Lab assay of single mutants.
Amino acid sequence: TQVHVDGVTYTFSNPEEAKKFADEMAKRKGGTWEIKDGHIHVE
């Protein structure tokens, strides 16, 4: 599962880990995350 944050791609083999990471990054940025085309995007 790929997580895209500010133009950087992080790859996780476990989708649950990817979601936890996205959640943390979104909180830090004061933003949100969503799943697009099977990838997670942090806004």
Rank of each mutant, 00 (worst) to 15 (best):
Y10H: 06
I35H: 06
P15R: 09
V3Q: 00
H41P: 02
V3L: 02
V3P: 00
K27I: 12
M25G: 01
A22S: 03
E17W: 07
Y10A: 01
A22H: 01
N14L: 09
A18V: 01
Q2G: 04
A26W: 03
V42N: 02
D6N: 07
V8I: 12
S13D: 11
H41E: 06
E43W: 15
V8E: 12
I40W: 04
H41Y: 15
K29F: 15
V42Q: 02
Q2R: 11
Q2L: 12
E17F: 07
I40F: 12
K19E: 12
V5H: 05
E16L: 09
F21E: 00
P15N: 08
F12L: 03
F12M: 01
G30F: 04
V42T: 02
K27E: 13
E16T: 10
T9I: 15
S13A: 12
K36I: 14
N14M: 08
I40K: 01
D23T: 13
N14W: 07
E43N: 14
W33P: 04
H4V: 08
A26P: 01
H4G: 01
E17D: 13
V5Q: 01
I40M: 04
I40G: 01
H39I: 15
V3H: 00
G7Q: 06
E17A: 11
K20H: 10
R28A: 14
E17P: 02
D6W: 05
F12R: 00
T9H: 07
G31Y: 10
H4C: 13
I35S: 06
V42C: 04
G7N: 09
W33G: 03
D6S: 07
H4R: 06
I40E: 02
A22C: 04
G38Y: 03
A26I: 14
A26R: 03
E16F: 10
I35Y: 13
R28E: 14
V5E: 02
G7A: 05
H39E: 11
D23E: 13
T11W: 14
E43A: 13
V3Y: 01
S13G: 10
F12D: 00
E24D: 10
Q2N: 11
T32G: 07
V8D: 09
G38P: 02
V5P: 00
A18P: 00
S13Y: 10
P15T: 12
F12S: 00
K29C: 15
D37W: 05
V42G: 02
K36P: 04
I40S: 01
V3K: 00
P15F: 15
G7K: 06
T11L: 12
K27D: 11
T11E: 08
G31R: 03
K19A: 11
V5K: 01
D6E: 08
F21K: 01
E43P: 05
K20E: 12
V3R: 00
E24R: 09
G30P: 02
T9A: 09
G30E: 06
M25R: 04
T32I: 10
E24T: 08
T1N: 06
E24W: 13
K20D: 10
W33H: 03
Y10R: 03
